[in-house]
Design a protein around this nucleic acid. Structure first.
Ligand SMILES: [Mg+2]
Length: 214
DNA sequence: GCGACAG
DNA sequence: ATCTTGTCGC
């Protein structure tokens, strides 16, 4: 059996994670990983779930890895990692090809305790990571101009914790924040470079693969 | 106490 | 997060 972590314990883990945050770095990366999950019964717990890791080289998909598992924790805002981290790590471990950086469907530092799921994953694997959320969890921002590449800071407790980025002309922005060993500026530029549509290709393709699977 | 709240 | 075709708009 695997000792189930309590909310209290996980909150401590997040404090620890935030205290060890490394939010700087402009790593040379060539293989980009994208991670996402899908659930058999999203409103029930426990439920069967699958995680997918897509490794993209900027042009082609180098590998896709899907793993199945049982998720026992319900979704609680601020505790997404409690629900999705394990399966994501499992997918990474199973993959023979390891990306140089991970893009996660969720936030990095833009989090109530400055420790979103992207930061957890980056630290656990010690590889650069970036959080890309479709909706904001905490903080304030102004809508960036409609042109692709326009961005505005996400301010939380008087500091910049990420950016609202327009990844496609005239389409809703995404919220990018550094997770591990990258700066927010690096996260912004890399994310934009990987966007053909609103969502960066690695994450978009991971999501699509899971959608076909069910 | 009320409202907001990644996926 | 998931159920789903067409439809409207950039
Ligand atoms: Mg997701």
């Amino acid at each position: 059996m695997k000792s189930s972590v309590t909310i209290e314990e996980f909150l401590k883990k997040q404090q620890d994670c935030a205290s060890k945050a490394i939010l700087e770095g402009n790593p040379k990366v060539e293989l980009f990983g994208g991670l996402d999950l899908t659930f058999e019964s999203p409103y029930k717990t426990p439920t069967r779930a699958w995680a997918c890791l897509v490794v993209f080289d900027g042009k082609r998909v180098i590998s896709k890895t899907i793993v199945e598992g049982v998720v026992k924790t319900p979704y609680i805002p601020g505790l997404l990692a409690m629900r999705e981290l394990e399966l994501m790590l499992k997918a990474f471990e199973k993959s023979n090809i390891k990306p140089d950086i991970l893009l996660i469907d969720g936030h990095g530092q833009a989090h109530p305790r400055l420790c979103g799921i992207a930061m957890h994953i980056g630290q656990e694997l010690d590889i650069p990571s970036i959080g890309v959320g479709k909706k904001l969890l905490v903080g304030e921002f102004s809508y960036p101009a409609p042109r692709r590449g326009a961005f505005e800071s996400i301010i939380y407790k008087s500091r910049v914790v990420g950016y609202a980025l327009r990844t496609k002309e005239g389409v809703k922005p995404v919220f990018v924040s550094a997770g591990h060993k990258v700066s927010h500026a690096f996260a912004l530029e890399l994310t934009l470079s990987l966007c053909k549509y609103r969502i960066p290709e690695p994450i978009r393709l991971a999501h699509l693969n899971l959608k076909k699977l069910r």
